[in-house]
Design a protein around this nucleic acid. Structure first.
Length: 271
DNA sequence: AGACAGACCTGTGAGC
DNA sequence: TGCTCACAGGTCTGTC
């Protein structure tokens, strides 16, 4: 997916198009996405007004009159606003037509994303309860990471990508933050000092803020709610740069697998 | 309990 | 040109 900055960009982009609008028609073009879309949701959603849209973790939460829609974009998902005359594209699985002649379209080639319908706040909250702290909140600090990591042997990269620890740090930003902090991704998280975690936190927040500011445009085929493309690899120091010289010391960037995911680091700058 | 592999899908690019 | 293969932003499940 889109990582946190891309989700945040999507939410901000959709906001002014959809808040206050009534959903007139719901179409499930392809119900067999990650979790199947249930036909009875259609009648429940139609006629409701969108009062708010927000992000929690990598989820997009839309508040209706008396229910909630929760979207997860998976690996390749996107939500965009379409015009009435716009043709359906391949992999447009869901369409919500609004009373302002616009529609929200969910596009997701790999179908790792999902849409969930929650009829009340309790069931929504229960779904959200599994998630860790927000990376841009004060609760995400060096003391917290240090405490959560004690006695763990897990590589630090996997640890910071664990959504029950902190949400929204995906593969690319995890690699980049560890490079900025000078920490090797494979180091056991339980052996990292409090001071190093303080430093890492600082870099994670910086990188995420920077990415949000740039419109979350680090991903190759990401496009925002207005269907504008991103600028892939604009400012990536290590991700996808195997064999190329490190910008700081010119040592060749290394690539390894951690938790099944490609991980990139500079063997000299990161210890 | 924690750590890992595998699964879910389609598209893309590299190599032959 | 066209085939095959490896790999891709995430997360859930099963197994040791």
């Amino acid at each position: 997916m889109p990582e946190l900055p891309e989700v945040e960009t999507t939410v901000q982009g959709l906001k002014h198009h959809i808040e206050g609008c009534r959903i007139e028609k719901v179409t499930f073009h392809r119900p067999d996405i990650r979790y199947p879309l249930e036909p009875h949701w259609i009648g429940a959603i139609e006629g409701q007004t969108i009062s708010a849209i927000r992000r929690r973790a990598k989820l997009i939460i839309i508040t209706l009159d008396n229910a909630y829609l929760v979207w997860h974009l998976g690996m390749t998902g996107s939500l965009r606003i379409s015009q009435p005359e716009e043709l359906m594209r391949k992999h447009d699985h869901v369409e919500l037509q609004l009373n302002n002649r616009r529609a929200i379209r969910f596009h997701d080639p790999r179908r790792f994303g999902y849409l969930n319908y929650f009829a009340d706040t309790d069931s929504l909250n229960e779904h959200l309860s599994r998630y860790g702290v927000e990376p841009l909140s004060n609760a995400f600090n060096g003391a917290y990471l240090w405490r959560r990591s004690r006695n763990k042997k897990q590589p630090v990269k996997n640890f910071i990508m664990d959504q029950t620890v902190v949400v929204g740090v995906g593969n690319i930003y995890a690699c980049e933050a560890l490079f900025a902090a000078g920490i090797r991704p494979q180091r056991a998280c339980g052996k990292i000092s409090r001071a190093h975690y303080d430093n890492l936190i600082k870099h994670i927040k910086n990188i995420l803020r920077q990415a949000i500011k740039q419109g979350g445009t680090t991903l190759k085929d990401f496009e925002n709610a207005d269907a504008e493309p991103g600028y892939f690899q604009q400012s990536l120091a290590v991700y996808g740069r195997e064999g190329q010289p490190c910008a700081a010391c010119a040592t060749a960037i290394k690539k390894i697998k951690l938790g099944g995911r490609s991980s990139f680091y500079c063997p000299k700058c990161q210890r």
